[in-house]
Amino acid sequence: MITIGIVDNDRFALPMLDMPLTDIPGPEICRRVRAASADIVVLGITAYSLDHYRQLAIDAGAQGLIAKSVTPKKELAEAMRNVLVRPFPGFPTTEQAHGSIVSASARRSRTLSKREREVLGLYADNYSTAEIAERLGIADSTVSVVVRHAKVKLDVATRSKAVRVFRALY
C-alpha cells in the first residue's frame, strides 16, 4: 500500500493502493476496505498497463486507477482531487461498490464449496492445474470439474474470470 493520501480527521480519506503487491495484492486490500466501509475513496496505482488492472480495480471496489508514470505532482494532485469528487468513468461510487461487494460476498460465500475456494485460491496464487492437483491430492480432471462448478456458481464463462471474481470477493 502506498501511504500517500489525503488525511481527513486523522484518517486516510484517499488511500492509494499499488495493484501488483506480492504479499497482498492491491485489489484484495481494496476489496477488504470496500467490504468494511462505503466511506473511503480508493485510488489504485500501477506501473503496469492500466488495461491489465482496470477490471480488477473495478471489481474490488476502487473509484479510479492511475499509472505511476503520472509523476508530475500537479497531475497526481489533480487525479486525487477529481476522484474525491466523483469516480473515474466506468468506476463505481463508494456506496455502489460497498453494496456490490457485501451482497456478492454474502451470496457467493454460501455457494462456493471449500474445495472450490481452495482451487480458485491456488489459481489466484499462479499455481498450474498439475500443481493444484498434486498439492490437493486429486486428479487434474477433478481440478477441472471443480473449476467448472465454480464457474457456474459465479456465473462466469472462463477460469480467468472466475479467479478475478474470486480475488475480488475473498
Rank of each mutant, 00 (worst) to 15 (best):
R110V: 09
S128H: 02
S105M: 13
L76A: 14
D140G: 07
A97N: 07
T94K: 10
E75S: 11
R86V: 11
S109N: 15
N82L: 10
R107G: 03
M80A: 15
L136T: 03
G121Q: 08
Q96W: 02
G99Y: 01
I132K: 06
Y123M: 03
G99Q: 10
A60Y: 03
A104Y: 06
Y127W: 10
A67I: 01
E118Y: 07
S100K: 06
N126I: 01
S69M: 01
S103A: 15
A139V: 00
E134G: 10
N126K: 06
A67W: 00
S105V: 06
S100T: 15
S69Y: 02
A62L: 14
A124H: 04
F91I: 10
R86F: 01
R86S: 15
G90M: 11
G61A: 07
L120H: 00
E134V: 00
G90D: 10
T93A: 04
S128Y: 02
K74P: 01
R107T: 07
E116L: 05
E78I: 09
H98D: 09
E95G: 02
F91T: 04
S113G: 15
L112N: 03
I138G: 07
L122Q: 09
E134D: 13
F88H: 15
E95P: 00
L76M: 12
R81E: 12
N82V: 00
F91Q: 02
Q96N: 09
E131F: 04
R135G: 01
S141L: 08
N82F: 02
R86M: 03
H98M: 06
T111V: 10
E134T: 06
V119N: 05
R115K: 14
D140N: 14
K74L: 11
R115C: 08
I101G: 00
L120A: 04
S109Y: 14
N126M: 09
N126V: 01
E134Q: 14
H98K: 04
T93Q: 02
A124P: 00
S109T: 15
